[in-house]
Design a protein around this nucleic acid. Sequence first.
DNA 1: AATGAATGAGGATTCATTCAT
DNA 2: GATGAATGAATCCTCATTCAT
Lengths: 194, 194, 194, 194
Amino acid sequence: MPKLGMEPIRREALVRATIAEVGLQGSLDVTVSQIARRAGMSSALAHHYFGGKDQIFLAAMRQILRDYGTSTRKALARARTPRARVEAILEESFAAPNFHTEVIAAWLSFYVHAQTAPEAHRLLEVYRRRLHSNLTHALRPLTGRAAPGQARILGALIDGIYIRSALAQPAPDRGEALEQLMHVLQHLLAEGRT
Amino acid sequence: MPKLGMEPIRREALVRATIAEVGLQGSLDVTVSQIARRAGMSSALAHHYFGGKDQIFLAAMRQILRDYGTSTRKALARARTPRARVEAILEESFAAPNFHTEVIAAWLSFYVHAQTAPEAHRLLEVYRRRLHSNLTHALRPLTGRAAPGQARILGALIDGIYIRSALAQPAPDRGEALEQLMHVLQHLLAEGRT
Amino acid sequence: MPKLGMEPIRREALVRATIAEVGLQGSLDVTVSQIARRAGMSSALAHHYFGGKDQIFLAAMRQILRDYGTSTRKALARARTPRARVEAILEESFAAPNFHTEVIAAWLSFYVHAQTAPEAHRLLEVYRRRLHSNLTHALRPLTGRAAPGQARILGALIDGIYIRSALAQPAPDRGEALEQLMHVLQHLLAEGRT
Amino acid sequence: MPKLGMEPIRREALVRATIAEVGLQGSLDVTVSQIARRAGMSSALAHHYFGGKDQIFLAAMRQILRDYGTSTRKALARARTPRARVEAILEESFAAPNFHTEVIAAWLSFYVHAQTAPEAHRLLEVYRRRLHSNLTHALRPLTGRAAPGQARILGALIDGIYIRSALAQPAPDRGEALEQLMHVLQHLLAEGRT
DNA sequence: AATGAATGAGGATTCATTCAT
DNA sequence: GATGAATGAATCCTCATTCAT
């Protein structure tokens, strides 16, 4: 009794399973079988829906970045002042769903992967550009022409804290991470007023 | 034409070849054969000298970190003032031999690997601790009790710039990287005087 | 032409092929590929169904011992008198399916293997205990308390004839083997009456 | 400073090392390197003296059989009566130097090997014939024409006890082994007198 | 829609053997 | 006499992928 409309469900399950498996193993060296098993189906079906391992990975990356993008957009919508907008972006980078051991590990793995896989590289480029643009827009009312440079620094710092969190034992400290970011932010904001 | 005392030569060649190959491919998914071929020997010999792929990787990581450590030590020895010491550390992080596309890519790959391999994790931990300690000592005369926290921020920023450089197209800009770091450093140093 | 329910068929084929190949080569130094080829499939499939060479060997041993156990049980069921029961056991040890050059060679190879492989050792131990118990039970009505010791002697003699048969050129003589056993049996049975 | 007359010393050391290593591992799957290391030399030297692994094994087999032959000859020389001669042969089969876990294991391994290697097969054949001839000669004065058949039975029983000893946990019981043999011997000797 | 069956390609590792010194 | 150096060949095992049902 074949079911209809299974495709989106299956794809979603596979993508979630991929993130989980890659995150857990901390490496892209996961087999399609492992992913499929975790998603509750055969590896043949995984191929059927995605065509190949690379596509599965790509879909998983898209999911991670889309999740991040979505939550950021929501946070921005809630912010009322320019400064609140900046802080919202920074906070969201370390918000619970993203700043989770598994997701960080998966993110880092995909990051490495992007060195080789052009499509993956493109995805990260989009994410980076959006982050940069968001930050710049938020900072502009506060620091004017200094905004782009500051956005670049904050972006690098976010990535740096992320990558360090990937090795944190036993678990990365969300509060501490945010504190460091805010500390630097404060300095940068003071810039304009000097 | 077998000679005596080949071991250190072969090991060195293999380590360099490993860094190059991993750097070029941007991934640890390199075969022992590839590494051995690049080093000009059979894969069997590579196993003979290192015992296994893991040991080869470990040796390559050690080399990268040792290279970095050595150059930093030299730079510190040359510095005359406290501030010069801090700058020396930061500059050295992006100095030519380290801040090279291949080395950066290899470094990032090993970073991911460290999530899984305990020994590799330990190596990075040592590196991180040393960087933190160097920075803290250098900052202490300038900012006192604020030094450790600032060292942490600078360390994360260094890593962040590194990881971003891994994806930079076509090549990471050493000058820009340093500029960002120095910018933040300046802010941090001003802290004490406020 | 993939069908369903191939697993038992494939496993059976592999087990038979293993016994044949080990028997023919007279050694456990057979490759999985050789076994798989003889069984008409790829070595990858052999691994798929058994997980590894060791498991294949274990399954082959189990098959040999199970075959022997089955035929013995049937022979015992047919025997009507105590003496007939003893003779049935001895005869079955050298009955056609078991006492075949290939099977003997395979059996001997596994025997050696059992010195090293605990699981294989356990299997042989079970076989030996069962033979001993069968013989003892059959002898008890005839020779009373002497039965266990006699069973041990007959068991050792069976193994001795087996191992000698492994080197027999061109083929072991079933009749002669049995004759020797029966000769000793006759002596042992006379024991009680002296 | 090359030493003269090292050859016999090296060969002896290698042969002993082979028996020990094969006995310990309970398998012929020992590497030339392991043997050479145990004998205190490089594997290249082992090849130099023996030409190849097979020759090393052959030499080891010869040693085992020669040791056995020598001790038997001595024991026979000490025996004064026909019966004592028979018992001497049997006892010697389980005498300390031969009936040792390692030697038994090595012997069994070589036995299996003989199924494949013609030269090894020939060696065992010689040993078997000599044992048979020794036993027959010793039995003839006692049981006349029955001697050859009895020799065959005793020979098989010896091998049977040997092979079982190879799996004995934790160590084979020399006394029990001999007892079984003597028990059967007694029966066989009674034969003539009936 | 879903999967068991099946395999080719590839990779780490081991080892007997050779060779130049 | 002795060995470190070196390798080709082999072997186990894994895995992405395909296919018939």
